[in-house]
Computed example of a mutant assay.
Amino acid sequence: MNKRLLVLVALSGVSLWSCDQAGKTSAEGAIVLPPVSRDDTAVLVNGRPISKQSVDMLATEIAQRRGGEGVPKDKIVDELVKREILRQSAEKDQLLKDPSIAARVDNAIRMTLSQVAAENLLKKLTPTDEEIRKEYDQRVGAMKASEYKARHILVEDEKTALDVIKRLGKGEKFDAIAKKLSKDPGSKNNGGDLGWFSPDQMVPPFANAVIALKNGETTKAPVKTDFGWHVIQRESSREQEAPSYESVKPQVQSFLQSDKLQRYLDEQKSQAKIETLIKYDAPAAGKPGQPPAAVAPAATGAPAATEVPDDNDESAEAGGPVEVEEETVIEEQVPPEEEVPEDDTQTPEQPE
């Protein structure tokens, strides 16, 4: 069985090795990485360092993703060594001379830097307790949701539904008729009982009919929906209180941070010098193949998650590459994945 490996992980940073100091840029203006001292190096691969921080960072990410369950660091080091070997292979084969590969690497670097930039900005855009409370009061605190408990009998035509209403008027039991005549397989055997539901869970004609009834009442006329004709009996109703401030405070804070970041990006975009050299026409809405629209970075700013197998993982025993999943703060903008055969060469498929 093949394991997936993002070749972008192996390739990203191929052009970032010729650096002198942290924070400096190359002649082309690209960001370069600081050198790794021998004291900070965990392992050398053909003279190339893999830092202790890289090992520790990957170990932390995996432990967080697994709910605190870590992976032995020797396996993490082994995975990083394999990635470095692939990276050096890419350099040797001068893969960056291929414009399509260079574009993939550029997008991978842009993705990572945009994520860390968003994380840094989110720290500065943390809303105050006053702002969170105000947002809660406006959007959540005043909300009350009505729920209803009802039964129904679903039949195929209006004539049958009218006959059901007459039989109910003569004293026949609702649940007995439902068990005999209803076409709804989900509620028929329960005497038409639908349990508790909110109006938005039902189609509008049905929901409106339930809302219009009083507790204990049955519809005096059949209700038509796309499913057929309904006779409805509302049994009870209740008001659901809004969730408490403390229970939803993290979600409200996340929403406000996302909103602040979106407004910041909109402002920066309006001030940026943007020259459109190629104009791409947006496809009509709803057409097949329409690409997802780029949206603002997610409020959580969560770091990319990377998975390393545990002791029982088949790929680890076979020496195969580890499955890696990369996420980006730009929602739905996921880098392409490449299949890597689990053989002795560990050579990724050549890009198309």
Rank of each mutant, 00 (worst) to 15 (best):
R238L: 12
F227A: 15
T225P: 01
A221W: 13
Q240E: 14
T225D: 03
F227T: 10
E217Y: 07
R234V: 01
V223F: 05
V223W: 10
V210W: 03
N208L: 04
P222D: 02
E241S: 13
T219E: 06
H230E: 08
W229V: 05
Q240R: 15
R234H: 02
N208D: 14
A242R: 04
Q233D: 04
Q240L: 14
K224D: 11
N215F: 01
I211W: 03
T219Y: 09
P204T: 08
N208K: 10
K214R: 09
N208C: 00
E239Q: 15
E241I: 06
G216Y: 01
A207L: 07
A221H: 12
V231P: 05
E217C: 03
A221P: 10
S236K: 13
P205Q: 00
A212F: 01
N208T: 09
E235P: 03
T219R: 04
D226G: 15
F206D: 04
I211N: 09
T225L: 03
A209Q: 03
R238Q: 13
V231W: 07
F206L: 12
H230R: 10
D226Q: 10
F227E: 15
A242E: 09
R234E: 10
S237A: 11
P204K: 11
K220Y: 11
N208E: 14
R234F: 00
E217H: 04
W229S: 11
H230W: 02
K214Q: 14
T218I: 08
A212T: 08
P204I: 12
W229D: 07
G216V: 07
K220C: 02
A212I: 08
V231L: 03
P222N: 04
A207V: 10
A209W: 01
F206Q: 12
N208F: 04
P205R: 11
W229H: 10
G228K: 05
G228W: 03
Q233G: 11
F206I: 13
K214A: 12
T218F: 01
A212W: 06
E239L: 15
K214V: 08
P204V: 13
L213N: 00
L213V: 03
D226I: 08
N215K: 10
A242Q: 04
I232E: 00
E241T: 15
A209N: 00
A221V: 12
N208P: 05
P222I: 03
A209H: 00
I211T: 13
K220N: 13
R238C: 09
K220E: 14
A209M: 04
E235N: 14
V231A: 01
E239Y: 06
A207D: 01
R234D: 12
K214D: 13
T225V: 03
T225G: 00
A207Q: 02
V223S: 05
N208V: 02
V210D: 07
G228V: 06
Q240N: 15
K220Q: 13
E239R: 12
P222H: 03
A242N: 15
S237C: 02
K214M: 11
Q233N: 08
K220S: 15
K220A: 15
W229L: 04
F206V: 11
E241P: 15
A209L: 01
G228A: 04
N208H: 11
A242V: 10
T219D: 09
E235K: 10
V210G: 09
